[in-house]
């Protein structure tokens, strides 16, 4: 029985990785400028016979794929961690208002400073917006956690998350009112989400923070398995809950914050990917769920990104729209499962 499951899992994982490779290739070739497979091979072997194609391929498409993969990993692991922290299957960076917190941080850094005639991004660089997004998401995650200590009900907590999101939007509106036109435009584009605005330098920064977040999550995977049994069970097994909770906070915040800083709020990937992973692999073990959710998250985000550039058309849809279209049915399905909402 157990052996069979191992083979089955290995088989599925192999297929999923092949899917990731295929999707990546499609995503690289797809775009307003179509690149053929042969062109891509040529570009990889000997660069620079076509300068503009070269730029598109190496400075836009490849960074976009890497961004998509990194974001998929980060959002899904962050969602998984939040679901464990709140014992809530509907927890995720977007629905709990934590992305809004990151948004608030970014709004403050992009528009808030412009109100005083400063350009924060110019002053602090992209590290500044990552920091602002992480601080914002961390603060909101802390708020929602404090609320969760009082509210045990799954649905009520989500309402609280929505309220926090609305509060963030209200403050952001205020900033929009007083900010300069240029920074307002910058912010509105950010809210639509995009995987293709990251430069190599930003990618380096993003991969560092995500790497730290992922490493922390792997480090706490085993105690999280025990913690999933409840606070009492975890404490009586000798787990220092406060320490694990702090590490979880740091990890989830770094992961959600850095993605949101660069790509905007990408909805529903974080909530849906861990559920699909649980459903396929029938496990609640974090040691498995962390890599598995990451794989599913990457696939979802790649599909969402391919859909932004509708095949055979020239329409470009914001990625936040496509992730929602993919994620909402899954979230609905979780809600309809009703009382069996276990993680």
């Amino acid at each position: 029985m157990a052996k069979l499951t191992k083979h089955y899992n290995f088989f599925i994982i192999t297929i999923l990785i092949i899917i990731i490779l295929v999707l990546s290739i499609i995503d690289i070739l797809n775009g307003s400028v179509k690149i053929s497979f042969n062109d891509a091979i040529n570009l990889l072997i000997n660069k620079s016979d076509n300068n503009s194609l070269n730029t598109i391929f190496f400075d836009i498409r490849i960074p976009r794929i890497i961004t998509a993969i990194l974001s998929g990993i980060a959002l899904s692991i962050s969602g998984l961690l939040m679901q464990t922290l709140f014992r809530n299957p509907l927890a995720g960076p977007y629905v709990l208002g934590i992305s809004s917190g990151a948004g608030l941080g970014v709004a403050l850094s992009v528009m808030g400073f412009s109100a005083f005639g400063l350009n924060f991004i110019e002053v602090a660089g992209s590290g500044g917006s990552i920091l602002a997004a992480c601080l914002g998401s961390g603060f909101f995650m802390f708020l929602i956690f404090v609320i969760s200590l009082k509210i045990k009900d799954v649905m009520t907590l989500l309402v609280a998350g929505m309220l926090l999101g609305s509060a963030a939007s209200a403050i952001i509106n205020l900033f929009q009112f007083v900010s300069s036109e240029q920074s307002l435009k910058l912010f509105v584009i950010w809210t639509m989400g995009s995987l293709s605005n990251t430069t190599w330098q930003q990618l380096a920064l993003m991969s560092c923070t995500i790497l730290i977040g992922v490493l922390i999550s792997i480090f706490i995977a085993y105690p999280l398995n025990v913690w999933l049994l409840g606070d009492d069970n975890a404490k009586s097994s000798g787990i220092n809950i406060n320490k694990i909770r702090n590490l979880l906070f740091i990890s989830a915040t770094l992961l959600a914050g850095s993605v949101t800083a660069f790509c905007g709020p990408l909805a529903f990937i974080g909530i849906a990917a861990p559920h699909i992973a649980r459903l396929i692999f029938k496990t609640s073990n974090h040691k498995l769920l962390i890599p598995l959710s990451a794989i599913i998250g990457v696939i979802m985000l790649l599909i969402a990104d391919i859909l932004t550039q509708l095949p055979f058309t020239n329409f470009l849809i914001p990625i936040n729209t496509t992730t929602s279209l993919l994620g909402v049915p899954i979230v609905l399905w979780i809600v309809l499962k009703g009382k069996k909402m276990w993680i």
Binding site: R87, G230, D232, R278, S284, W342, I343
Partner: peptide, 9 residues
């Protein structure tokens, strides 16, 4: 008497 709400353990 803590409830064990785990789906797949």
């Amino acid at each position: 008497t803590e409830l064990l709400k785990i789906a797949y353990t």
